[in-house]
Structure formats: C-alpha cells, structure tokens
C-alpha cells in the first residue's frame, strides 16, 4: 500500500492505496468524488476526464500513485459547492441552455474537456471545439448540442467583465 497526497479541487487529499489503483478509482472510492465516471477503462471514451494543472487527462490511464502532488480538478470543482451548490459555472449553464447532454454519463468529461479548451482558446471555431471533444465519446447527442453549448459558453465567457477565462471559480 502507498500513501498518496494530492490536491483535488483546491483542497489537499491524502489516502492509502494499492499501487495498481487508477486515479479514477482513487477519486471515486478514496476521495468519494463520484462525478468522474468509468466508461471504457482503456483510455478511449473520455468519460473519466479530469484536469491536471488545467490539462485534460484520462484518469483511467493514470495510476493514483503517479498523481502524487498533482493539482487535479474534477467536475465537483466546477460551479458552486457547499452553500453555493446549485450555482452553475458558465460552461455548465451553457450545456443546460442547449441541452448538450441526455443521460449525463459522459457529461462531466465533456465539460472538463471544454474547460481545458476554453482556458487556452477563448474564441474557438466549431472545428476547434470538435477537435477538443474528439476524445470524448457521447452516445446520446450526436455532439451537435454539445458543440453548440461550448460555442455558447465561449461567447458568454468572452462577454464577462471579470476577465476570468474559465469558470472553475465558484469555490
């Protein structure tokens, strides 16, 4: 068993885990954050996407022990939490606006992929949006309303006054 300490959504988290445990399972079973979903567990579908230092990463392909000391953002770190639970981030709100989801299973990964894109590209083209989510499989939507959501979020983020590029801000 190994001790692992990392930062999740701005808070330090420590846990004891087997070396073979994936970051995905660590997040779900040790940290208790169920918003990161297992889809294929071999790195194709993107349902388990999280951000590490702002970059989209598949948590099923990384071991928890490899994430030692990393700064991780999961879907629980987007939008409001605690007393502010229920407050949507801009990207989340855009997904609701365009109905960029159906069953909701791939959605956390999609939103984090969008987050990663919009944090470095504030005015993406449709092609760039499709490229950014091309590693995330959705079986419900045909992607059309997801692409709409991300373009809408980009537009709204661009219109914000506070110059914060992404919406991982509602602590």
């Amino acid at each position: 068993m190994n001790d692992v300490t990392l930062t999740i959504n701005g808070k330090p988290v420590s846990g004891v885990t087997e070396p073979r445990v994936t970051l995905l399972d660590f997040l779900r079973d040790v940290a208790g954050l169920k918003g990161t979903h297992a889809g294929c567990e071999h790195g194709v579908c993107g349902a388990c996407t999280v951000l590490i230092d702002g970059t989209a990463v598949r948590s099923c392909l990384m071991l928890a022990v490899q994430a030692e000391g990393e700064d991780i953002t999961t879907i629980e770190g987007i939008g409001g939490s605690g007393a502010r639970a229920g407050e949507l981030g801009v990207i989340q709100d855009a997904f609701c606006e365009t109905h960029g989801l159906q069953c909701g299973y791939c959605t956390p990964g999609m939103i984090l992929a969008a987050e990663a894109l919009l944090s470095v590209n504030t005015d993406p083209t449709e092609h760039e949006v499709r490229e950014a989510i091309s590693g995330n499989i959705c079986r419900c939507t045909g992607y059309v309303q997801i692409v709409d959501a991300i373009l809408l979020a980009a537009k709204r983020l661009g219109q914000r006054n506070d110059a914060v590029p992404s919406d991982a801000t509602l602590a």
């Binding site: 709100d93 989801l101 909701g104 956390p108």
Partner: peptide, 11 residues
C-alpha cells in the same frame, strides 16, 4: 431547459 440537466452538468 430540461430539468434533469442541472444535476448531470454538476456530476
């Protein structure tokens, strides 16, 4: 807006 979407976008 579909009412279900809120909980799903929040994981």
């Amino acid at each position: 807006r579909p009412v279900e979407d809120r909980r799903f976008v929040a994981g």
